[in-house]
Amino acid sequence: MTYPNTLIFVDLTSDDPAAAGEFYAAVFGWENDPRPKGVFHRMVPGQNFLNPDKSQSQIGNLHLGIHNAANARPHPDPEGVAPRQVAETGRKARIWVMVSDDDSVERILGEAVKRGAEILWRNHFWAEFNGFNDAFRDPWGNEIILWGKGGDSPQVPDDYTRE
């Protein structure tokens, strides 16, 4: 078998990439790297994945892009192609974010809501992947799932939904 193709980037759509970049910088503490501002923003989570002993590994964190719905770059035609707006109905991209040990779901959701996000659900445990999760929809319709590992013997509070 050959070496598998590697996922290098995921983009979210926005009709205002500059505002979306500011949103994710405030909510998650990520670096907002406009390339160029308002056209494409690369969100840089910073640092590397952690080893079990909490030291940084050699593996850098994945980056997230935010492209402009009016003219998603790159594209061979400098004018881009239709559609040129954020999708209004149906499912959109979902991204999963591991909540850092030195952050909290409450802080993240508070910042997100303050900036126009809508909470989709709170306090859920998914046994199949041993994780606690909460979710919100950003102002552009993208769904963000906040994830926390359950650990070896997860203690699921009584008020949590489960699957």
Score class of each variant (00 low, 15 high):
residue 152 D to P: 06
residue 148 G to H: 06
residue 96 W to F: 14
residue 145 I to A: 09
residue 14 S to P: 03
residue 96 W to L: 12
residue 124 H to C: 07
residue 42 R to H: 08
residue 10 V to E: 11
residue 108 I to W: 02
residue 19 A to I: 00
residue 83 P to G: 12
residue 94 R to A: 11
residue 68 N to A: 04
residue 146 L to K: 01
residue 5 N to A: 15
residue 1 M to L: 13
residue 123 N to Y: 03
residue 117 A to M: 02
residue 95 I to M: 05
residue 140 W to F: 04
residue 105 V to L: 01
residue 54 K to P: 03
residue 30 W to F: 02
residue 128 E to M: 08
residue 96 W to P: 01
residue 106 E to I: 00
residue 120 L to I: 09
residue 141 G to F: 00
residue 79 E to N: 15
residue 118 E to Q: 13
residue 61 N to T: 13
residue 95 I to N: 04
residue 84 R to Y: 02
residue 159 D to R: 04
residue 88 E to I: 15
residue 93 A to M: 13
residue 132 F to I: 04
residue 30 W to N: 00
residue 163 E to Q: 05
residue 113 V to K: 10
residue 109 L to F: 04
residue 34 P to Q: 13
residue 157 P to D: 06
residue 110 G to N: 02
residue 123 N to I: 00
residue 139 P to H: 00
residue 27 V to I: 06
residue 59 I to W: 15
residue 89 T to C: 01
residue 61 N to I: 02
residue 113 V to S: 03
residue 30 W to I: 02
residue 159 D to M: 06
residue 27 V to M: 08
residue 149 K to Q: 08
residue 70 A to K: 15
residue 2 T to E: 14
residue 135 A to Q: 07
residue 16 D to A: 15
residue 27 V to P: 09
residue 47 Q to A: 10
residue 101 D to G: 14
residue 11 D to F: 13
residue 128 E to Q: 10
residue 98 M to F: 10
residue 58 Q to N: 13
residue 56 Q to W: 07
residue 2 T to V: 13
residue 129 F to I: 04
residue 32 N to F: 08
residue 135 A to D: 05
residue 94 R to Q: 10
residue 153 S to A: 15
residue 10 V to G: 09
residue 92 K to M: 13
residue 50 L to I: 08
residue 145 I to W: 11
residue 123 N to F: 03
residue 59 I to K: 09
residue 121 W to K: 04
residue 95 I to G: 03
residue 146 L to S: 01
residue 128 E to D: 08
residue 105 V to M: 02
residue 78 P to M: 05
residue 62 L to G: 10
residue 81 V to G: 04
residue 65 G to A: 10
residue 107 R to L: 03
residue 29 G to H: 00
residue 65 G to N: 06
residue 66 I to D: 02
residue 151 G to E: 03
residue 87 A to N: 14
residue 13 T to Y: 11
residue 147 W to E: 02
residue 63 H to E: 14
residue 59 I to M: 14
residue 87 A to E: 15
residue 100 S to W: 05
residue 3 Y to A: 14
residue 13 T to H: 09
residue 2 T to R: 13
residue 137 R to T: 05
residue 79 E to D: 15
residue 27 V to F: 11
residue 133 N to T: 10
residue 35 R to F: 07
residue 109 L to N: 03
residue 63 H to I: 10
residue 17 P to I: 08
residue 125 F to W: 05
residue 54 K to N: 12
residue 33 D to F: 12
residue 49 F to E: 07
residue 125 F to K: 03
residue 143 E to P: 04
residue 116 G to N: 12
residue 15 D to R: 01
residue 84 R to Q: 06
residue 27 V to D: 09
